[in-house]
């Protein structure tokens, strides 16, 4: 009888946890429509990004100049090895812009966050067909833009604050979203609206909502 009561207590505790999951910090996740600017870095609407060089997952160097010529969605994110929120965001973004071939999507991670699991995630879900994944050696670009996460956990080596930039064909920043809280990310519909504005008024300079 005591064992039965103990088992019931443990099971009820687990059941309570299952019900409470959405209100825990793990459960707090999802997208929100408004753009944020939690961290003031080197980013300003209308300015071009400083020159930079990144590296493809195949080791090929890619310069910032090579990425010009089409609207560019430049996303600097944490890790698709261990961060569930980043993975969810990436998949949501791919789905949202599957039918927008004119928009080039570049996903940048710190070189320290590229692992075999990262490559498996990209390959198994065929993400490379739509998104260009680039590594930032020693987080140089992340540091240059003032986006490096301060006081990182050991696993977070070199990660930026999640950042979304929309650049026009000339490489000028037209839309910025930088956030400290990685649980809640920018809704793709906001990016789609910014892209629409960029295509309808190619010379106007946008700013966060």
């Amino acid at each position: 009888m005591i064992l039965r009561a103990l088992a019931t207590i443990v099971l009820l505790a687990l059941l309570a946890l299952a019900f409470a999951l959405p209100s825990t910090s793990i459960g707090r996740r999802g997208s929100e429509p408004g753009a944020r600017r939690d961290v003031e870095g080197m980013l300003d609407p209308g300015r071009a990004l400083p020159s930079f060089e990144l590296v493809g997952l195949d080791g090929r160097p890619v310069s910032g100049d090579e990425l010009r010529g089409a609207p560019l969605l430049l996303v600097l994110e944490r890790s698709i090895d261990w961060c569930p929120f980043t993975k969810m965001r990436l998949l949501q973004l791919r789905e949202a812009f599957a039918d927008t071939p004119d928009l080039r999507i570049v996903w940048v991670m710190s070189e320290a966050q590229i692992s075999p699991r990262t490559r498996i995630f990209i390959d198994e879900l065929g993400l490379g067909a739509r998104i260009l994944f680039l590594a930032d050696p020693k987080s140089r670009l992340i540091r240059k833009l003032g986006l490096l996460k301060p006081d990182p956990e050991p696993i977070e080596k070199g990660v930026p604050h999640p950042t979304t930039l929309l650049l026009d064909r000339e490489g000028r920043v037209r839309f910025i979203d930088v956030r400290e809280d990685y649980h809640i990310w920018l809704d793709p519909s906001t990016i789609a609206r910014a892209l629409q504005a960029l295509e309808s008024e190619p010379t106007a300079v946008g700013s966060p909502d």
Binding site: L14, A18, P84, K87
Partner: peptide, 26 residues
């Protein structure tokens, strides 16, 4: 449920299944 790989595929289903399984267990 808390891991993006599964959550993006299954949504809230793992948590619902967990509740059902714990009910059966009790």
């Amino acid at each position: 449920w808390g891991v993006g790989d599964y959550a993006s595929w299954l949504g809230d289903l793992p948590r619902t299944e967990a509740i059902l399984l714990l009910g059966l267990s009790i």
